[in-house]
Amino acid sequence: MNFEQSLKRLDEIVKSLEKGDVSLSDSMSLFEEGTALIKNCGKMLDEAEQKVVMLRKGADGAPVELPFDAE
C-alpha cells in the first residue's frame, strides 16, 4: 500500500472506530491495523529521499531520464 492508500484506509478505520458501531473485537483489530498503518506511514515519511531527474527526448521520441544537477 502506498502512502495515499494507507492514509485513506486510516481515515476509514478512525471514522468507524469513532462511530463505534463495530463490535469490541472488531474494534480491537481495527485499532491494531490502524496502529500498524500509522507506524508504516511514519516510516515512509522518515525514509523518503527526494529523487530529481531531468527528462530528455530520446532518439525514438520516448522520454529518457538523466541525472539533474541543480546547480
Binding site: 486510516l10 481515515d11 478505520i13 478512525v14 472506530l17 469513532e18 463505534g20 469490541l24 474494534s27 480491537m28 481495527l30 485499532f31 490502524g34 496502529t35 500509522i38 506511514c41 511514519g42
Partner: peptide
C-alpha cells in the same frame, strides 16, 4: 498521523 493515533486510541478507550 499523531492525531489519528490519538483519535483511534480515544475511540477504543471509549468503546
Amino acid at each position: 498521523l499523531d492525531s489519528l493515533e490519538i483519535r483511534s486510541s480515544q475511540a477504543l478507550m471509549k468503546k
